[in-house]
Design a binder for these strands. Structure first.
Lengths: 195, 195
DNA sequence: GTCTATAGGCAGATAGAC
DNA sequence: GTCTATCTGCCTATAGAC
C-alpha cells in the first residue's frame, strides 16, 4: 500500500491513453498513429495492440476517460462554487486550461472529423456534448433563481449556445496561439448573461 | 462566345477543386485522397498531379478560391443590405447555407487540423479569419452609428467573438445533423447585439 | 492532358516466440 | 506483456508513353 496505486491500474494502458490523448487533442484522431505512441512510450506497435486491439477501441477508451474526468470536474465545480455565475466562470476556465496546454477540447476536435470516426466514437462524442449541455442548462436555471444570470429563451437552447461558443473560441484561438483571444470571447459570453 | 466560359477556365482543374472542396469540408483535409477525387472525376490519380503537383498545392488552391468566394459574398452583402444588423444576419445565413449542405466551414475544419497542415495552408487559414474579422468589425462600427447594433468593448474583440461563435455553432451542430441547433445559436448571438 | 506502371513509405493489424 | 517479423492496403508521388 506504499505506492499511489488505485485498484485496477495497469500502468501501461493508462500511459498509452495519456500519450494518445495529448496527440488527438493536438493533431486529431486520424493524424496520429500507433507508431507515434509506441515511439514515445518506448515499446513496439505490436505491444499496443495487446492493450487496445484496434484504433477504434483506443478511440473509445480515450473519449470515455475524457468524459469521465470532465464529469468529475463538473461535480467539483458544483461542490466548490456557490452561485451559478461563478460556476459558469469555472466552466469557461476548464476550457481555458485545455487551450493553455495548446490543446483543443477532445470532443471539439473529434466533432470536426466526425464523419470519418467509427460509429462507437460518434455516439460518445454526442453523449459528451449532451451531458455538458444538461449541466449547463441546470446552471442556467439556478442562475435565474439566485439572480446571478439572466437570459431569454429555453435554458437548453442557451446551454447549446454556450457550449458552441466556447468550442468555437478554442477552435479559432488555437491557430493564433493566443489565449487572450479565447478569454475575450469567454468574457463576451458571460457579459451577455449578466443581469 | 456562346458558352458561359470566362477567360482562363481550364475545366478539369476547377472540377477537381469542386470535388476536393466538398470532401475537405465534410471529412477534413487529411481524410480524403487523390484516389477519392480521381474516382469521382473519372480520371486517374496520376492525372491529378498534372493540375496540382502535390496535395499541399491543391490545399492552397482550395483555400484561396474559398476565401475569394467568401470575399465576394461579403461585397454582395455590403451592396444589398442597408443596415448593419441586416448585414450581420446575412453573414450568419452564409454559414447556415454551408451547414445546410452538411458541410463545415472550410477554414473551421482546417483550424481543427491546423497543426498538421503545410505552412502555406496555415497562413491562408489565418488570413481568412483575419479578413472576416475585419469585415465584421466594420459592420459593428457602422451598426453603432446607424443604431441597429449595440455592444460594449472593442469592435475587433466582438468581431472575434462573433466569428468564433458561428464557427463553434457549425462545429457542434453538424454531428447532430441539426440545422435548428445552429439557428438557435445564431439567434442568441444576434439577440446579444440588439440595442 | 491523360494514361499505365511503379516506386517508396507508412498505416493498422496479426502470428507466434519469449 | 513485450518482442520480431511480416502482411496487406492505401497513401503521395514520379517516369515516361500516347
Amino acid at each position: 500500500m506504499a505506492r499511489t496505486r488505485n485498484r485496477k491500474e495497469s500502468g501501461t494502458a493508462e500511459r498509452v491513453l495519456d500519450i494518445a490523448e495529448r496527440l488527438v487533442q493536438i493533431r486529431g484522431f486520424s493524424n496520429f498513429s500507433y507508431a507515434d505512441i509506441a515511439t514515445e512510450l518506448g515499446i513496439t506497435k505490436a505491444s499496443l495492440h495487446y492493450h487496445y486491439p484496434g484504433k477504434a477501441e483506443l478511440g473509445q477508451a480515450l473519449i470515455t476517460r475524457y468524459a469521465e474526468r470532465f464529469s468529475q470536474a463538473l461535480v467539483e465545480i458544483d461542490r466548490d462554487r456557490r452561485d451559478a455565475r461563478a460556476k459558469l466562470e469555472a466552466y469557461a476556465d476548464l476550457y481555458a486550461g485545455v487551450l493553455r496546454n495548446e490543446r483543443m477540447c477532445m470532443c471539439g476536435i473529434l466533432a470536426a472529423e466526425y464523419q470519418t470516426l467509427p460509429a462507437a466514437m460518434q455516439s460518445e462524442v454526442i453523449r459528451f456534448f449532451d451531458e455538458n449541455q444538461r449541466w449547463l442548462a441546470a446552471v442556467l436555471v439556478s442562475g435565474k433563481s439566485d439572480g446571478t444570470l439572466a437570459y431569454t429563451g429555453r435554458p437548453e437552447d442557451v446551454a447549446q449556445g454556450i457550449l458552441s461558443t466556447l468550442e468555437g473560441a478554442m477552435l479559432v484561438a488555437r491557430p493564433y496561439g493566443d489565449l487572450a483571444r479565447f478569454d475575450a470571447a469567454a468574457r463576451q459570453l458571460l457579459n451577455g448573461l449578466t443581469p
